[in-house]
Nucleic acid binder design. Structure first.
Lengths: 152, 152
DNA sequence: GAGTATGTAACTAATGTTGTTACATACTTA
DNA sequence: TAAGTATGTAACAACATTAGTTACATACTC
């Protein structure tokens, strides 16, 4: 599987929770939808719990559910719950570096990248989990429609 | 060194080229400024050459130079020269997936992430290498200024 | 108490990045 | 033409990250 698919898996996971509404969903079931191992899902869900997005119940009939309606969960909430490090890394260079460029490029880059992340953040904040799932739902119903056609 | 510092190293490299103006700069010298190995720099510069941003000369007095003024090179040019894969990966799932969510989340995500990259791209296009180096230059002169003060 | 579900440690495998050595190739200059 | 300089590139090691897996303790329901 590809490199930084964590975000995709995370949204997919939250999508299943949104789709299932009030019901508690097991990591087993989500793993089937995502095509991965239940432990991978549990690791991600742990982070959602920490971030207050999801609550979890053990035992029979247990599993995870959203703590807020999908309209009140943005992709930014999801992203910041799982992604701890920066999008672009700016390795630290000694501030007594011989080369003047080497001494000062990095702080400037940190500023530039910071701007990028603000941009990214505001974009992600504008998209709710519900928005995503509405699109998914419309694709699902489109499929049903064409399936009906084929049955004719 | 940190994970995805490629972009930072790439801008740093281009920054040194911009700083040195017409002169041809060796990978050796750039590596010193970036604090890495010359081969690492050559690998990155190869990509800039392919992208048409930089030209290179072998032999005595050789090295790399910008092919365009720094005002006409954007951070997007640099980013797309070195970064071949997508910012966020959307692993492919079978389209005959049992779970309806599993079947359709991914294409929707591809669309969402596509939007993100367009956003990112336009932001990066708005920043020229010159913009970055102007900030670096002002930091350098600020340093000189305070150094003079200390000598008093 | 039986059954179910999460929490988590430990390990493997795959991948990607960075760093390094070594050497072939190309070019400049004396 | 020979010496010196710089890139091009292959090959490999070191390291970090991610994903996948097994195993088992813990918590909860009925």
């Amino acid at each position: 599987m590809a490199a930084n698919s964590k975000f995709a898996i995370a949204i997919h996971t939250m999508g299943v929770l949104a789709y299932m509404g009030e019901r508690h969903v097991s990591s087993e079931l989500i793993a089937t939808s995502v095509s991965t191992n239940p432990v991978v899902i549990r690791r991600i869900i742990r982070k959602f719990v920490t971030a207050g997005l999801v609550s979890v119940r053990m035992g029979t009939g247990g599993g995870a559910t959203l703590r807020r309606p999908a309209t009140e969960i943005s992709l930014f909430d999801i992203h910041s719950a799982i992604e701890d490090d920066r999008l672009f890394q700016v390795p630290h260079l000694a501030s007594d570096h011989e080369c003047p460029v080497g001494r000062f490029v990095r702080p400037v880059l940190a500023k530039v990248f910071g701007g990028l992340e603000v941009e990214l953040k505001s974009h992600l904040q504008g998209i709710s989990l519900k928005d995503v799932m509405d699109e998914v739902a419309s694709e699902i119903s489109a499929e049903k429609c064409s399936a009906t056609k084929n049955e004719e």
